[in-house]
Design a protein around this nucleic acid. Structure first.
Lengths: 232, 232
DNA sequence: GTTTGCTATATTTACGAAAATATATACAAT
DNA sequence: ATTGTATATATTTTCGTAAATATAGCAAAC
């Protein structure tokens, strides 16, 4: 019954909102790998003061999306083949763990979530008419993968997984080649969903490992080495 | 041949050094779980301004050693049975992964590192004469466990492992009971080292899982529920 | 022509004060 | 006595500026 004086209820601090925006701009490739992040530019760009900016960048540095060199400033984290391979390794292990535990502990609601997610995913084409990845498809794609591990029951695993997903998304979006590859997503996803719902951890592990590896192969198997493009 | 004007070469920023000190104070239990971190107190305590303090706390929040509630301030991360069990789960998986990969990829230098580390560890008693854990033993204990996974070759895995180690150290040091338990560390450690050097991943996995679980059992099997002690 | 050393400029880092928000206290009404 | 409302206090968040550090430009020496 209490009526607050504040109308909007926007409780976010400037630090948090500029953190969100910076994170998106980096994951989207808007801010290029290796690029220097100058405070004057960022202040201009986001219309904000120094303090919340520095805090947001500090947080991003701790998540390895940016790099801090003391007294020299912040850079967008560079990308490399070696890093992409390390990322693949971690993603495989984390996804496998999450799926394995979900298979052990998941209830009917968890299964239903997967069925619903893959159904929604199948209703939508991954590419729009002009050949770009459909944002709504991407949203559902994320939702599907989330649904697989939703019963893992480990906050730490889920937190780590979210960070790794950000890193992976950045590589994917930096790869023009990836968007042009005529990959049959639905078949792969359906196979994974089937194995998981059948509670077959062995098959699920094999399929998810291959699924993740395939993405990296597509990115690496191209001369699309935007991957090397790094400002200083 | 260049003589820098600066004598000491201390390149650290205030943010970094206060980050280090805060981290240690939290891991040591000096700043108690759940305790509020007021800026006036911290400024006083560390003799430093607001800006570097906020940045350090932001970084610690991102590592889950402190918690930030917007507009309400920072707290030392609370502890709980559930969190300790989640931590155990992650540590087991991460250690197993690191050891498995090291067994696959490790060279002679890696093996030598383990042999050297366990030798040094055996030379030192875990408890001092007055019944406290010997800091030098603890250093060597860390060094031994590090040596096991030193050949894993995954920056992300090592980074994650370091964070989990901080969390685990905090629980261990908060547990008075743990320090009183007459545990035979050397036998456990030697068995692990033997299995790893024999390149037996199955035995190594079994032993390291039990080793980590044992620590948690000791902490939980006591009324020593300092674990519940949380200021608001 | 390359390197060394100095000066000027650009940039990051840190502080102190102002603004915004939350918490505590006092008072009034039922 | 308890709930609700207004006021005062404490605390966090943010900005603008000063201090510290690094980078770039330029002249002199080898």
């Amino acid at each position: 019954m209490v009526v607050t004086k504040r109308i909007d209820g926007d409780n976010k601090t400037l630090m948090t909102s500029v953190y969100d925006r910076l994170r998106l701009d980096i994951v989207d490739g808007e801010l290029r790998p290796g690029g220097k992040l100058r405070f004057e530019e960022l202040k201009e760009r986001y219309g904000i003061g120094l303090s919340p900016l520095r805090e947001a960048l500090t947080r991003l540095a701790s998540e390895k999306l940016v790099v801090l060199e003391e007294h020299k400033g912040f850079h967008v984290a560079p990308i490399s083949r070696a890093d992409l391979l390390d990322l693949l390794f971690m993603r495989q292990e984390v996804e496998v763990l999450g799926i394995r535990r979900s298979i052990e502990a998941g209830d009917d609601a968890w299964e239903a979530g997967i069925v619903g997610a893959i159904h929604a995913l199948g209703k939508r084409d991954s590419l729009t008419s002009d050949g770009h990845i459909d944002p709504e498809w991407e949203r559902r794609h994320h939702a599907f993968h989330d649904s697989l591990v939703a019963a893992s029951g480990s906050p730490r695993l889920m937190f780590l997984r979210a960070q790794l997903t950000d890193h992976a998304d950045r590589y994917r979006r930096l790869s023009h080649h990836y968007q042009r590859s005529g990959r049959d997503h639905l078949a792969e996803h359906t196979a994974i969903a089937d194995a998981v719902i059948a509670r077959d951890p062995i098959a699920a592990e094999r399929l998810i490992r291959a699924h993740l590896a395939r993405t990296v192969e597509i990115i690496l198997d191209s001369d699309d080495l935007q991957i090397i493009a790094q400002d200083k």
